[in-house]
Nucleic acid binder design. Structure first.
Lengths: 245, 245
DNA sequence: CTTTAATGTTAAGCTAAGTCAAGCTGGCAG
DNA sequence: CTGCCAGCTTGACTTAGCTTAACATTAAAG
């Protein structure tokens, strides 16, 4: 008569909600929401997230419901009205952003990666490093405040330097004659980064907009102390954040 | 009367091969087979793999079939008679082992990890680093030949130093009076590594077996040039590989 | 040669994350 | 105040990797 013993009582609790906390996918959603919601914070819609992550809106709805059902909830989700991060969700998102930016800095400073290649590698690794690894590279780098593209690195406790809590101004919003310091550049497009580097545009450099052609035309920009100005397209100008000061 | 349409013809081909190349799971199987098959090479059984990976034998059978069905096949699999790596499978396995050991060395040398903590971190990261990352840390370290535990690091082309192509001898196989040099120690158990470090046992150190108590009793070992001998349990002695020379 | 214990394999089914297609909704145009 | 349609949500299905339970095979012992 068979053993049968095995399946008896069983943890009848295969149970409820299932998990999906801490998964790579969940992390990516949280990071996406964080980045899309901007500062000050806005609600983010399913489709926005879907486009950002290159998946379908249906998947997003699904995952948002799971994230909202966690204990504690990672997002505040209202059917048909978008989503925002909860306290816990924001903490997690900032942790991942910290990982990402520390890794980028590390790759650039310690492993001599060119700045256009750090993003891709960091995008994968950010999910898999331990707290210990994070702590070690931060120490090795002397607890840096900014990554190679000029983005602020959140502190361990999940706080950002004060000036970073507001939406930064883009070079494309300057008026002719205005001068400003480059605070950061978008890290998403390697080609763009290579081009910017070749023009000498990087965080900390002072730029002066001498002229802007109409209809989103070229931006004529004087860079640092260089003699002749450069011409930047609208989308390039948009990818450059500046502090007017 | 319901649609019913659904189950009809069906892609009767739920089908064959599917993919699962290059996945983390597949990598882990290949590595497990590589490690279990030893040198010179033996066939490895499903259950061995199952135990090594802490999953069920059924899962293993499944995956082996997929790995064998790849184009090119990653393993040579014979029902009921175990499995061995194909050319391509061996190449991939060595690539992962190379990643693992380079990462361990890197964590130890560059990030000052203690040698008992490197394994766990490397175990995760080995699957996610790019070729570029591999190349950069290898360069940073001066293309090392051995990891912190004394294991040989495969070259980029997937070859191992000559002496590593044979099964190493364990300290537990020495006869009293024999002397040998520690070539490597097992990296799996952090506690054991800490203990070994405390006794001064590490790769490169010369040891002399002065006495071995019967029935797998303690091994009395003189370590390097130290005055008084240490007592090692059988399992400890087994975890230490030596070159007699 | 037969039996059987150990070991392997198949089949069915679960979960996580995704897809597609169809059904809802809610805010704006008339 | 109505209706409509873009944007969400739901539901039914997929795939990868796993589990359990049932069935099959091998090899060793009688």
């Amino acid at each position: 008569m068979k053993k049968a013993t095995t399946t008896l009582e069983r943890t009848a609790e295969t149970n409820s909600i299932a998990a999906s906390a801490g998964s790579e996918a969940a992390d990516n959603y949280l990071k996406a929401i964080f980045q899309l919601s901007g500062r000050p914070e806005r609600q983010v819609s399913s489709t926005e997230i879907a486009i950002h992550l290159s998946i379908t809106a249906a998947s997003v709805t699904n995952m948002l419901q799971k994230l909202a059902a966690q204990q504690p909830p990672l997002v505040i989700y209202q059917k048909h009205h978008g989503v925002k991060l909860s306290k816990a969700g924001k903490k997690r998102a900032l942790e991942i952003v910290r990982h990402h930016r520390l890794i980028e800095t590390f790759l650039h400073e310690v492993l001599d990666y060119p700045w256009d290649e750090v993003h891709q590698e960091a995008e994968r690794l950010e999910h898999f490093i331990s707290e210990r690894f994070e702590e070690r590279i931060a120490a090795k780098l002397g607890h840096p405040e900014f990554d190679p593209h000029g983005h602020a690195i959140p502190a361990m406790d999940g706080t950002l330097p004060a000036q970073m809590t507001q939406e930064p101004r883009s070079l494309s919003e300057l008026r002719p004659g205005q001068s400003a310091k480059v605070s950061s550049v978008s890290d998403k497009d390697p080609e763009m980064l290579r081009y910017l580097a070749s023009k000498g545009i990087r965080p900390g450099i002072r730029v002066t907009l001498s002229e802007q052609l109409p209809f989103k035309g070229a931006y004529e920009v004087r860079i640092g102390s260089s003699a002749k100005p450069a011409l930047l397209s609208h989308s390039l100008a948009e990818a450059i954040s500046v502090a007017v000061k």
